[in-house]
Each structure stands twice: as structure tokens, then as C-alpha cells.
Design a protein around this nucleic acid. Structure first.
Length: 498
RNA sequence: GACCCGCUAGCUCAGUCGGUAGAGCAUUUGACUUUUAAUCAAAGGGUCAGGCGUUCAAGUCGCCUGCGGGUCACCA
């Protein structure tokens, strides 16, 4: 399998062997650090060169990291070592570490991992550094690092070898660290409000909670097929029936569909349910949650995104889908009387109507997608989705053709989807039946009947608001990333041919 | 799935009209005890993604395949 080794790789293997011959483990052992680059800089950056130089008992620090640059000048040299937090320069002098250790430093390659013990110092050029008194070679890197100046640029390699990307590209590292911090902020926000984080099954016997093509797998002992979940919704609502009044789940969903800069086959969402709330409650929560996360992690709610500036400051527009269509086309669907009239309008506007688009609401939805989505840049809650495309949502009591649902759009993309939850078991059963009808008409993403879920509603589910937020897209927005792959540690790639 | 673009040394990139493959970093050897893209001198390193074709001659032109990126379609 392994290709022929390059000259550099052979040399490094020989160097590893030389270390072993000296009794040094080329893949060394525990090294107790007193500082990392961050705590070291925090502790010593306020000192002057003279203060550090003239200390009678200079402090002794121990740090470890990967050699990223190296400048040897005869019997002394400099290097930068890098840990999770950044880089620090080390100054290694033969007089101080001894000739044997100095030779180890001299032979060390970029990419090797070392530990140093020494004193804080400031160089003639003013850089806070470590004057090494004890040098420990920890790990030999057999493979050379990319160009120290240009880093790893090739997109394919950055995704396939994310570890190299993390070593070489600070932007990638910062983005992926920020992802963790954003999710952590989200948990903290909800935990402070008393929400309970729960875990529901990922293997689902019945497809439900969203419209999407699933991954299908098989359990041997039960000898039955399972779907990887496309949404956790129906399980979380069972918990609301069960009396857990405010729950959320952060986790992976799986949809067997196309991949592009905003879609990955597995992606992360948060779904959240709050008993005795409703759609407006979810709008308020969503706005406050995202603003809090932005403020906590970026210090602002006005953020750059590609060529645009997105203003997340609270007070987002709330608009009915029908009103937005009217703004763009002049058509007022509140006054369109029936399906036939709506369909005629669609055909006049060159909108393709499929066999399973059999209802008035399907047409309304097609108009929205065709004319409105791309126009929405700043955060907008679009509410009032048609009943046909919202099988789990409570009807609008004033106009039962529409539901109490919203989607949050920013820069033409959907970020969140929320409902006043449908808690009428008889209505819910009919909605499922309509989904089955769509399936027969060729909508292979229609949901399946979940009779156990209907029965749970028969026990009584409190009036409830629920919301799902796409975390990958939110992280993209807050890190100004243009591809979902930039916010995934290990994006999926096709196997390389031989 | 369709179309467009890309693939040259470990990495980043040049490569003109089709005429024996280039640089910087990295590597090796030598010099250098405060450098920082260290510097100076010398050297080694290539299945030009893979294949087929056109041609006296292909990194370069054509076709096929692979992988990647983008756009569209799909994904409410």
C-alpha cells in the first residue's frame, strides 16, 4: 500500500533510529508542563527585557509543542514551538543545554515535538521567548510539514488530512474551536433557563419528523430495518406528553441527499420544545439565543458574511409568507379562492407543478421558494406556512389553510424551523394520512404514519412551542465560512481511486 | 445527475508556438552563539493524477477514467 519513501522520509526514519540508538524513545513519554503558550505569555508579557534578565532567581517554566520554525546559527539557535493556543519562540544555546542536547536540537526537524525547560527572556528584537536550560526530544515526525510560509492550501488535502490543516492553518483551527464554543454557549444559555438536555434514539423504526430521504440500515438480532434519524421531533414531543416541560437535544441528523456548500449527509441540529409556549415564544427565544451566542463569542451582533453584512441585532422582521409573495409578485394568496386558480397562476408564472403538488398550499409554497427566498438577506421570520407542507404544525385558527409555523431565513438560507406544535391527535392522524397520499403520488420524501405518536397525543400534550436550528449553518454564519465543510472537523469525501 | 474549472518535487507555484522539467520553502553537506519567511555556499529530489490517441516529438492538443472545487438540478 505504502508508496516509495521520499528522500526526506528516509532521512527522518534514520534520525528516529539514531535517537533510539542513543537510548531515547523517538515517541517519548509524559512531559509535565507548567505553562502552555497562552498562560506563559499572559504571565510574562508585561515584563521588560531588563527585568527578566536581571532576576536573581529567574522563574523556571516547562512547555511542550511542535517545532514550526527553526533557525540555527552555529552553536545557538532559535525555534518556534506550537501548542493548541499558539506559538512561542525558544532560544537554545549549546553553553546552556550542553553539547549532547544541542546536537539533538540541531538534528531536530520541523514537525518534531519537543519539551523545554527554561527561563522567560526577551530577545534583542523584543520577542518574549524561553531561554532553554533543558531540552527534551519527545516525538519524531516522519512526515515533513507543508511549506512553513504558505501552509496547506489544497482544499482536498485540508479536508482529507484535517490534522495537517489544524497544524498549519490558524484560521481553520480558530473556526473549528469557535464551533465548539458556540455549541457550548448554546447549552449554557438553555441550561440557565432550566432546560433539560436529552438523548433520543438515532435508529428509528419509522421515518418521521421531517421530509427527507433516509439512510437505511439493519439490526441483526431484531432482524428489522432501521432508518438513521432525519429528525428527533416525534420522540421529543413524546417527552412533552410525558411531562418534561422543557427539553432540547443537540445531535446529528442523517439525510441521504445531495452534497453542496450548505448540505452534508450528516449534520448537527438543536431541537427544543417548551410546553405552554407557542410560535411567538419560539421567535423570541430564537432571536435572543442567537444574539446571545453572537455577543458572547464575537462581541457583536453585526457580522460580516461573505460580501454582505448581517445585522443580528434583536428586532428581526416577522412576515407572513403570503405577504412576502405579494411584495414580490403582487399576488395576494389570501384572496385566491381555490387550488385551480392557484395552479393557473403558477403555470402563468412558469412554475413547475408536480403530481404531488395537489393542494392550494403546495402552490403557495412554490411561489415563496421561487420568488421570495433569494430576496431575504437580513434575519427574517417567515411564518404562516401552508398546511400541506406542515404536517406536524397547529393550524391557524383564523385561516385553516395556513399553520402556526415559521422558518428563519438569513441570506436566502433556512436557519431554523419552528411550530406551535400540533397536539390534536385526530388532526395529526389525518395529516399523516395525507402524507401517505403524497407518497403514493410520487413524493418519496413524504413521512410515514406513526401510530404510537398519535396515541401519545391522545393522552394529551400541553400546548407547546418547538424549534429546530441548523447548527452547522449557524456556525458558518458566525465564523464567516462559505462551505459547511469548513465547519466540520471531518467532512465526508469520496474514496480515492487506486 | 448536467455543465465549467483544476490536478507538475513533501508543500506553494511557474512552465511561452508541441522540441530532453523550473523556482521558493523543505531536505543533505559546510560556515555562523540574539535569529525570526535568518543569511551565505554547494548538492540531491519528478510515473507532470491514471489510461488511450494524434504527432518525428505531448506537462502542453484530443478522448476516456479518477479525485477535488464551483454553478445548476435535487434537498420545502
Amino acid at each position: 500500500m505504502e508508496n516509495k519513501l521520499t528522500e526526506q522520509e528516509i532521512v527522518r526514519r534514520e534520525k528516529a533510529q539514531e535517537l533510539a540508538n542513543k537510548g531515547l524513545d523517538p515517541y517519548g513519554s509524559r512531559f509535565d508542563r507548567t505553562h502552555n503558550t497562552n498562560t506563559f505569555k499572559a504571565e510574562y508579557s508585561s515584563f521588560t527585557k531588563e527585568e527578566l534578565h536581571e532576576m536573581e532567581n529567574p522563574p523556571v517554566v516547562k512547555l511542550a509543542g511542535r517545532i514550526m520554525t527553526k533557525r540555527v546559527k552555529g552553536k545557538a539557535g532559535f525555534a518556534h514551538i506550537q501548542d493548541q493556543y499558539g506559538r512561542i519562540q525558544i532560544y537554545v544555546k549549546s553553553d546552556l543545554v550542553g553539547e549532547e542536547s544541542y546536537e539533538l536540537f540541531d538534528k531536530a526537524d520541523l514537525g518534531d515535538i519537543i519539551g523545554v525547560e527554561g527561563h522567560p527572556m526577551i530577545t534583542n528584537t523584543g520577542e518574549l521567548s524561553i531561554k532553554v536550560i533543558k531540552y527534551t526530544h519527545l516525538v519524531k515526525a516522519l512526515h515533513p510539514l507543508p511549506d512553513k510560509f504558505h501552509g496547506l492550501v489544497d482544499v482536498e488535502e485540508r479536508y482529507r488530512r484535517r490534522y495537517v490543516d489544524l497544524i498549519m492553518n490558524e484560521d481553520s483551527k480558530n473556526t473549528l474551536i469557535l464551533r465548539s464554543k458556540i455549541i457550548s454557549s448554546m447549552r449554557r444559555y438553555l441550561d440557565n433557563l432550566g432546560y433539560l438536555e436529552v438523548e433520543t434514539p438515532i435508529l428509528h423504526p419509522i421515518l418521521g419528523g421531517a421530509n427527507a430521504r433516509p439512510f437505511i440500515t439493519h439490526h441483526n438480532t431484531l432482524d428489522m430495518p432501521f432508518y438513521l434519524r432525519i429528525a428527533p421531533e416525534l420522540y421529543l414531543k413524546r417527552l412533552i406528553v410525558g411531562g418534561l416541560d422543557c427539553v432540547y437535544e443537540i445531535g446529528r441528523l442523517f439525510r441521504n441527499e445531495g452534497m453542496d456548500p450548505t448540505h452534508n449527509p450528516e449534520f448537527t441540529t438543536i431541537e427544543l420544545y417548551l410546553a405552554y409556549s407557542d410560535l411567538e415564544g419560539m421567535m423570541d427565544l430564537c432571536e435572543d439565543l442567537i444574539c446571545s451566542i453572537a455577543t458572547e463569542n464575537l462581541g457583536t451582533t453585526v457580522i460580516p458574511f461573505g460580501e454582505k453584512t448581517i445585522n443580528l441585532t434583536k428586532g428581526w422582521r416577522r412576515a407572513h409568507m403570503v405577504d412576502l409573495i405579494k411584495e414580490e409578485t403582487g399576488i395576494n394568496f389570501f384572496e385566491v379562492p381555490d387550488y385551480e386558480t392557484a395552479k393557473k397562476l403558477a403555470l402563468e408564472h412558469g412554475i413547475k407543478v408536480e403530481a404531488h403538488d395537489y393542494g392550494f398550499g403546495h402552490i403557495v409554497n412554490l411561489f415563496f421558494e421561487h420568488y421570495c427566498e433569494e430576496k431575504i438577506i437580513q434575519p427574517t421570520f417567515v411564518y404562516g406556512h401552508p398546511i400541506e407542507v406542515s404536517p406536524l404544525t397547529k393550524k391557524d385558527p383564523k385561516d385553516p389553510r395556513f399553520t402556526q409555523r415559521f422558518e428563519l431565513f438569513i441570506d436566502s438560507r433556512e436557519y431554523a424551523n419552528a411550530y406551535t406544535e400540533l397536539n390534536d391527535p385526530i388532526d395529526q392522524k389525518e395529516r399523516f394520512e395525507n402524507q401517505l397520499k403524497e407518497k403514493e403520488l410520487g413524493n418519496d420524501e413524504a413521512t410515514e404514519m406513526d401510530i404510537d405518536f398519535v396515541e401519545s397525543l391522545e393522552y394529551g400534550m400541553p400546548p407547546t412551542g418547538g424549534i429546530g436550528i441548523g447548527i452547522d449553518r449557524l456556525v458558518m454564519l458566525l465564523t464567516n465560512s462559505q462551505s459547511i465543510r469548513d465547519v466540520l472537523l471531518f467532512p465526508h469525501m469520496k474514496n480515492r481511486g487506486k
